[in-house]
Design a protein around this nucleic acid. Structure first.
Lengths: 206, 206, 206, 206
DNA sequence: TATGAATGAGCGTTCATTCAT
DNA sequence: CATGAATGAACGCTCATTCAT
């Protein structure tokens, strides 16, 4: 095991334009290598070479490769959150749960359609030690707020939200990773809606 | 002459009792390290050291660490399959979908309760290059056969089975990994049943 | 990912003066070890240690020890060829075969006198797998051109040239390797000339 | 460098028939591997495996692989010597030098025709440290004795014999190694005779 | 005595990271 | 600053050899 890594923050925020270009080249190269060769092949030397920058330059902006993938995860999570937030904002206007769910599902599917390989690499190839757990609680809170009005006879709305989130995300993610073609299958989204609908609006018990 | 290693087959089957112990020590050590330090820390030297065997002995039985984790995955998958098969065998006798689902969910939860850390390590820490995709299709076929009789108004039973399998497994796995205590929460299983029930038995459309 | 090394090309050309020194130290150390301990003792670690450079530096410039000995052979062959070429250029001016042969023999002897141990090591210690066959055909062509005018009653000049080349080289090489003192023996060169002279200028048959 | 090898003699002369079979299997396997993979691939484990004997058995008969190749060289040299001796015995009866040389050359060519690959492997692949210099002096003595009567105007018969031996052997060996087909070329032997004849029977000087 | 198992020492190679220009 | 060069600490793997049954 190498010496304890000194955190994973960038070393120096790039201010000049040239620096920005360097940093971008590095993150793009890292993304490419991560997708192609996984975390195993993601070496600082390889990143620098592919980015066309000197290895020392890389270390001027990042303290190590963990910092680079941290940046990657950050950007990726930010993009995802934006996508999801846009969708969630439209929800309150929806009159039916079905429409709301359709919107949500479509948003997540869209998000996975963009760069499924990158998605997969970040989600599956990174070892636990460098994985920055996305703050799912925030998302769950948003979901809870958005869907509470529609719920009927749900004993534990928070738990239900967790389950719903995990389930729908897992199915979409798995599909995007293994059989991406199915994302375009017309019935796919409907099935997910069909899964969640009666789970959130249940018939009265007894 | 560094002949390319032929993937992940064992090199030599242990015949004497002494070597059986060696092989066991190796697999146990590998499991331990995989759980504690992830795939990154899983070096052949570390395995041998922790197992208390010479590094050469390790290579006498395994051509590399990939082979060791392959063995681990194999054993693990076999155990899982046995568990699941036992549960599935009892299904046909069940009269209601609710009972059948309860049985299935309980089986998967049980399976995850045993060694959640090992489960997580095998499922999440291994890089794609050494992951032996469990033949999910088989399981899905079994599920399809078991639940077909109960399904009502499901347009695409096969797709529904996939979704159900992925969803329930993801929720349980995630829960076992992050908040294992919740596996014992009384309502947890019920919620999963509540998720799948109306998904497989739907009200008539139109 | 142990990508198969692409044989024996250099990895990186040294640009700064500092690294030129490193590369030189490596080749010199390799020569020394090859002479002292043969191919068996020629390990990359030993080379680096004797050269006083870090093992990683070695790998920055050479992909392995095969590449280093390839370089050695290249340099050595180049030197030899220059020596021989110089001698061959003077041949056309010679009026008698005896003088021409004397010149040739003297050149080859000289070539072997410089560093007989290095010569021997390169010629005998290297395993076939790393031996870069010197393009003898070129030399033979030159010899043929140079000696054709002198030949008399030689049925197959090309074959005769081969035999002459191999014979004279073998005798000189063997002598330089086992009993180098004899290279200075006054009659040695004459004997070789005496061997070849009547072989190239034969009495009429019948 | 490994610990100093304790000489290269066999450990134990096989007396029983079974032992002889084991030793033969070992030497044959060693020969095969030496030819196929060179000295580099000649490991004791490989020899034992190919010979179908246990590695420990190998060490019961040989103290190391050096001893095995020593045995190989011994057998090979013995065979060669027998061949040569047979030829030399017939020489005294020959009336002319030409006939005597033809006989000698034919014998050496024959010797190389049998197993050129083995010949080459033993002659070229072995590192100097394990090469048992064939006692060439003996052969040279025999040659001197056999050819002395025929020599005319040779200032240094002993040196001439050396040169003759080295030259003829080198040419034949090289030819057997690189272009074995030429050994059957009708003029090949004659050329060698033509090389040596006037070298041993020279016209009076002055 | 024949066999499987064990072992220490070492080799080739890479990688993350720092130094010097 | 940007670049080439340097480096130490591993890691994967093999080999010759011995031990234990």
């Amino acid at each position: 095991m190498k010496a304890a890594r000194p955190a994973t923050a960038v070393r120096k925020r790039p201010r000049q334009q040239r620096s920005r270009a360097t940093v971008d080249a590095i993150t793009q190269a890292a993304t490419y290598i991560l997708v192609e060769s996984g975390w195993e092949g993601l070496t600082t030397n390889a990143i620098a070479e592919r980015a066309g920058v000197n290895i020392s330059s890389l270390y001027q902006f990042f303290p190590g490769k963990e910092a680079i993938v941290a940046e990657l995860q950050l950007r990726h999570a930010a993009e995802s959150r934006v996508k999801l937030a846009e969708a969630l904002e439209q929800l309150p206007g929806q009159s039916s749960l079905r429409d709301a769910l359709a919107l949500l599902v479509a948003a997540i599917v869209d998000e996975h359609r963009i760069a499924p390989a990158v998605h997969r690499a970040i989600a599956e190839e990174l070892p636990g030690s460098v994985r920055h757990a996305a703050p799912d609680d925030v998302v769950e809170g948003q979901l809870l707020a958005a869907f509470s009005p529609f719920m009927r006879n749900v004993p534990n709305p928070q738990l239900a939200c967790r389950i719903a989130r995990i389930a729908v995300h897992a199915v979409i993610h798995e599909t995007a990773s293994r059989t991406p073609a199915m994302l375009d299958h017309p019935g796919f989204n409907e099935e997910l809606v069909a899964l969640l609908m009666p789970f959130l609006q249940r018939p009265a018990v007894g």
